[in-house]
């Protein structure tokens, strides 16, 4: 089981990149999850609300349906509400401040060799690793 994990990762990755390629070439848009939902929340994407809501409906609904039919998915989220609230606040604030997250800066940015995408990815992985290690091994929060 452990030995096939990387293969599922690669397959899922190809699907993620395929979805981003479809969104770019057919709709003419950069597929960034934080931008798509963030523009709806802060009202900066009023002219694109229909296609953004449709994207979110597919993103939330289809995996939910798949898990309902097949099962076997777990998020293993922290049971500590403070960790979830603080994590969510930082992810929301940070991604909108930097104008992108793992999909926008990571997948769409690095694949066009965007300097901003590469710098963003270096920082969120570096800080993410430091915070993760501190929170788990030093503070014992997670």
């Amino acid at each position: 089981m452990i030995e096939t994990d990387w293969l599922w990762g690669l397959l899922g990755g190809l699907m993620i990149g395929g979805a981003a390629a479809l969104y770019l070439l057919v709709n003419g848009r950069v597929m960034g999850a934080s931008g798509i939902i963030g523009g709806l929340v802060d009202g900066s994407a009023r002219d694109q609300w229909a296609e953004r809501l449709a994207f979110l409906a597919g993103l939330v609904g289809v995996p939910a349906l798949a898990v309902l039919l097949i099962g076997g998915a777990e998020t293993h989220l922290s049971g500590n509400p403070a960790v979830l609230i603080l994590g969510g606040l930082l992810v929301g604030l940070g991604t909108r401040m930097a104008n992108g997250c793992t999909s926008g800066h990571g997948v769409c940015g690095i694949s066009r060799l965007s300097l901003r995408g590469i710098v963003a990815t270096v920082f969120y992985i570096l800080v993410g690793g430091i915070v993760m290690v501190l929170a788990r091994h030093v503070l014992g929060w997670i």
Partner: peptide, 25 residues
Amino acid sequence: GSSLFGAGWGLAGLCPGPALASLGW
């Protein structure tokens, strides 16, 4: 922004895409 995002990502283990995709379960 990317540093703040990384801190939240490391803490909770979720970024915006997976947070939405896993909402159902």
